[in-house]
């Protein structure tokens, strides 16, 4: 009985230790899904739109309140040749995209 008891404690301790170590290793090695790609894609989209829409004097999507998980905005400052920043006549155009 005594030997069996000692063996049980040893085995359970070893098992717990191994499981803990393997669990820690597995957690540390886990690859978290990257969020760079959708954000990068949204950034690119808003940048493209701000340039393309500017040629046509269009406003694009100017949603002011974030509703989706990923959101990127591009703010464009438009100066007329007759304006200066001191006169505060700079037009601001914000284009946002979400997924």
């Amino acid at each position: 009985m005594k030997k069996g008891f000692i063996f049980t404690i040893d085995a359970i301790t070893a098992l717990l230790l191994v499981m803990a170590l393997v669990g820690l290793f597995a957690t540390s090695q886990e690859n978290n899904p990257t969020v760079n790609v959708p954000v990068d894609s949204l950034n690119q989209k808003t940048l493209d739109q701000s340039i393309a829409f500017n040629y046509f004097n269009q406003t694009g999507n100017q949603a002011s309140t974030p509703t989706a998980q990923y959101r990127a905005c591009n703010i464009q400052y438009i100066y007329d040749f007759t304006e200066t920043q001191l006169e505060k006549k700079v037009k601001e155009r914000k284009i946002c995209e979400e997924i």
Binding site: F7, A11, A14, V22, A26, Q29
Partner: peptide, 28 residues
């Protein structure tokens, strides 16, 4: 008998742990 049981259980645990670790490494 005690040594044999300990050794076998330990071996099983080590193989089990190594299997999991190699599996994770392979996946990574």
């Amino acid at each position: 008998q005690i040594f044999s049981l300990d050794a076998i259980i330990s071996l099983i645990l080590v193989i089990f742990a190594l299997g999991i670790i190699f599996g994770i490494l392979e996946t990574n």
